[in-house]
Design a protein around this nucleic acid. Structure first.
Length: 101
DNA sequence: CAGGGGGCTAAGG
DNA sequence: GCCTTAGCCCCCT
């Protein structure tokens, strides 16, 4: 399996997360058939263009927290996008009830 | 090759 | 809750 296929599989998994729900990097990797590729997922999402239709904001870490420095532009951006689909943080964390199950 | 660093994770103090 | 350790993927200098 080459790089492109992994990337495609990952992005496809990301796009499969319904609006109003979230998933962890590890979950995405797992669902893409690539257990252990959590960090790889983050690396892939990092290079997406601004205008992408891929819902990168629905991907968070296993602790339910946003994996950006709190207060950074990207952090705010992600929070805004989540709020826009009815997802709200509690003490900087996203409640478990939003996770895909 | 060595070292450092990322949108990570699970386990232990 | 915090921090460290070890393990995971990869990339860059």
């Amino acid at each position: 399996m080459d790089h492109d296929q992994k990337q495609t599989a990952i992005l496809q998994q990301v796009c499969s997360v319904p609006k109003g729900n979230v998933a962890s990097y590890g979950d995405i990797a797992k669902g893409a058939g690539l257990p252990g590729y959590a960090r790889y997922v983050g690396r892939v999402l990092k290079m997406l263009p601004k205008n992408t239709n891929v819902p990168w904001h629905r991907i968070i870490n296993s602790q339910g927290m946003i994996s950006f420095p709190k207060g950074s532009d990207t952090y705010k951006k992600q929070v805004e996008r989540l709020n826009q689909e009815g997802i709200y943080l509690l003490k900087d964390k996203i409640p478990k009830s939003y996770f895909i199950r």
